[in-house]
Design a protein around this nucleic acid. Structure first.
Lengths: 249, 249
DNA sequence: ACCTGAACACCGTTCAAGT
DNA sequence: ACCTGAACACCGTTCAAGT
């Protein structure tokens, strides 16, 4: 390392540094607030200096998206049975939204397929192959799971779902009772909504639905007792913890 | 109507006209391409004239989003059993994406809850109440369904899912076989993917999953024959048409 | 009430120039 | 190789003025 004296009053410019600062700015102020000029000022250079490393503002955004996706933690996705691996992938996607809520809407609307996306789908496909589903169904199931995880997280970071703010709660109360009876009946539950629970419940429902239509590989499973009537035991207070539907008749 | 002679060389300006043109411009060129100045030029007025009707560019976008949502066709959502009503709501959401693919990413990322969203959720809640689910589960199920429908459609308009373009197909073929075995095994299915089928399959899987965990109201159902082994009949060629899993043991 | 017109502070990007 | 510096065509928005 022969980088001489001349203490640099700022860190040396680089693609990585630019992308890192860009992500920080987006996290703080949103994608709209990211401008080439603000970014350059922040880095202590002239706006046009950035064009040496990245050709356009869009390229900066693309770089940021890829950086975030590449740092996704896919570790849990290779351990456990297929259900746990699918869940791990969904949770990893949701974590990205939590880590970078202001980037997430842009990230999920990003058209190009990145390498990381292929890895996510590969993980999904491998898990789903274990169920014995026919190939067509695996592809559909992959789309279902991916759509759910991104859609839920997007709604979450946009506060489209989730416990209402006081203002939204007032808005809800103001809905005419004649037109919105069900909403009013459920108002209490909506106010107390826990998003972690809701996300998990959705995944569980999906996995049950998927398992119900294929030859599930036989898992070690508990003795199913005298479960003979049309009444199903799952419809009780323990529904939050969904059980494996693959029990024999 | 006493609007005098003086043939106006352009239509009278109004909030509605501005929003209509704005939507057309977005449909043609995307949200980024919508500028107050372009819009004004297109309408034959000075840029600042628009500020008489709408206070900011964001207000224009908000108005466009609300217009599109309000024109959503929720007709089918009040006919049929709960499954058909849920499906009708999902299909209506997807239709919005198909009608305005370039607006859709912005629309689903729009933070404020609109009146139409409350109507969609009311429709979902009413349908789900029929299943006899406990209230907490209804709210979770609503989130699941809404997340899936928006997530799938978003992925669709962004071409994140769907049959790959020739370029993407090449990209896929280039993935190292050692790291992406499942993707390669499924390459044929992915190339031939039909998005309508996939969307319907996802909804069906969700509805089966939801129905499996509650006391389902007894529907007329066919006699289940000698279905006694661990092999399940659903795992065959007829899986595309998902069947009701609520058959007795 | 409805639109013009000038002005301000921003923006992405290009191109030539410096070292 | 890496950054400056001037310039261009855009942008949203404000504010005063016209009719």
């Amino acid at each position: 390392m022969k980088t001489g004296s001349a203490t640099p009053r700022r860190a040396a410019l680089s693609r990585e540094l630019i992308l890192r600062r860009a992500l920080e700015m987006i996290d703080e102020a949103g994608v709209d607030a990211l401008s080439v000029r603000r970014l350059a000022t922040d880095l202590g250079v002239f706006p046009t200096a950035l064009y040496y490393y990245l050709p356009t503002r869009d390229a900066v955004l693309r770089g940021v998206v890829e950086t975030v996706l590449d740092e996704m933690d896919l570790a849990g996705a290779s351990a456990g049975d297929w259900r746990e691996r699918v869940k791990a992938l969904c949770r990893a996607l949701r974590q990205v939204g939590h880590a970078h809520p202001r980037l997430f809407p842009y990230l999920v609307s990003y058209p190009e397929t990145t390498a990381q996306e292929y890895r996510i789908y590969e993980g999904l496909y491998r898990a789903l192959e274990e169920t014995g589903m026919p190939p067509a169904r695996i592809v559909h199931a992959g789309n279902l799971i991916f759509s759910y995880a991104t859609g839920f997280t997007l709604a979450e970071v946009n506060a489209t779902i989730g416990p209402p703010t006081p203002a939204e709660a007032d808005q809800m109360s103001a809905l005419p009772a004649a037109d919105f009876p069900a909403t009013h009946r459920l108002a209490g539950e909506i106010r107390g909504l826990d998003l972690d629970t809701s996300f998990e419940a959705g995944m569980d429902a999906i996995l049950i639905g998927l398992a119900a239509v294929v030859t599930t590989p036989v898992e070690p499973r508990r003795e199913a007792g005298g479960d003979t009537g049309p009444e199903r035991q799952a419809a009780g207070k323990d529904v939050e913890r969904l059980s494996d539907p693959g029990r024999e008749p």
